[in-house]
Nucleic acid binder design. Sequence first.
DNA 1: GAGTGGTCTAGACCACGGT
DNA 2: CCGTGGTCTAGACCACTCA
Lengths: 246, 246
Amino acid sequence: MKLSSPVASDHRLPRYQRLHDEFSARIAGRQWKPDEPIPTEAELAATFSVSIGTVRKAIDALVAAGRLERLQGSGTFVRRPKFGSSLFRFFRFEGREGEKLVPESRILKREVIEAPQAVAAALGVAVGSPCIHLNRLRLIDRQPLLLESIWLQKSRFNALLEIDPREFGDLLYPLYEQYCGQVIASARETLTAEAVGSRNARLLEIAPGSPVIVIERLALSFDGQPLEWRRSHGGADQFRYHVEIR
Amino acid sequence: MKLSSPVASDHRLPRYQRLHDEFSARIAGRQWKPDEPIPTEAELAATFSVSIGTVRKAIDALVAAGRLERLQGSGTFVRRPKFGSSLFRFFRFEGREGEKLVPESRILKREVIEAPQAVAAALGVAVGSPCIHLNRLRLIDRQPLLLESIWLQKSRFNALLEIDPREFGDLLYPLYEQYCGQVIASARETLTAEAVGSRNARLLEIAPGSPVIVIERLALSFDGQPLEWRRSHGGADQFRYHVEIR
DNA sequence: GAGTGGTCTAGACCACGGT
DNA sequence: CCGTGGTCTAGACCACTCA
């Protein structure tokens, strides 16, 4: 089997597993780009000298993992990460009539500051290295919902300093991509709860000491490099999280 | 294809899908019992007059859903529900040395009481119908960790009233199975957070008004009947929940 | 060694999407 | 209509478990 990219793949592994790793690398390496079709199953089978069934099994796993999407009759496509499973979706992101919407964003602060210890550890940089720090308030129907503290490595995101924060818009990740060439591919989130401090209580317009949900997110590039770390607070009464257990 | 049990299964569906439904029904109907092997793939293929590949595809889905477990060389087994994905596992269930353990259980109250509105709705019974209500405290290293309010339909769980609560042991579900013949097969959980009331604060030995995680669980039988509803409180500082997002 | 699931093949035919 | 993925088959051989 010939591999177009130098993937460390043990030849004792099953073929479908090696194919899976190869395809996965092509998605990560952006040789197969989001929203574009990958080669047909028959082409892949011929390219790698395996049967179609084996190609299908490799693709099955990537579809199950949400990295590819099959469309019968038209092809198999690289799925753009949608963060559909983020914990944030369990906040009430609805307007007055219950329709889903993107919260309005207000940048409260933008500063260049030396990375404190916790941030440095999360981003994998040295303590004290220069970072961009944003404070952002997110609102639904003019009501404060979430307060976010966002940390970025200055060297990667310098371009952000040249834009007026009032023109950031409501979503940051498209901004990162457009101005800094940094694409967020995945994230890890941690949920905790605590009593809100007086400053955050004022900004969120809730009673001091009332419970808030705290979500920490480390957002990563395609190759697993930490790009952004954020810590978000939101009133606990705006949050409900569901799971099914079998 | 002959079906041993009367499953409503549209014959226009793919064969593997119909097989999946049939197998699923056999697990739910306990014709295939937990920890026992199901017939071999070859036998199933012969029984249903399909090829082994089709049987495998049906089994694949049930394995992915955690209902079956394959053991190469020995067979495919019905998996006993393990509740491994419960939100409760994100509480610190460790002893002093960090080892995982089952919390000690202390039944604080057992009463027969008419179902209040919320309980009746969850259990699918009439408001005011007789229920068994338990209050239970769960402790690690003698430290209170969780406070649980548990509701059961009296008619199904009458046998519980004949046992001394001090002999309940640390786990309820085996008790339900042994004394009442009621088997918990799945559950739905909802996580919220709130400020703790004074009574619960005293029992949990935390400051009044401090944040608590609240987990509501509706536990279901194999055929989807609600059997138990519980509402659990635990100090938020004991809780951390993680997810990966793609 | 007999029997289980695990991998893989090469082909057939179907259902769907676009042209 | 052609090309795509979706279903299904009948077989081969491998890897593992257990007696």
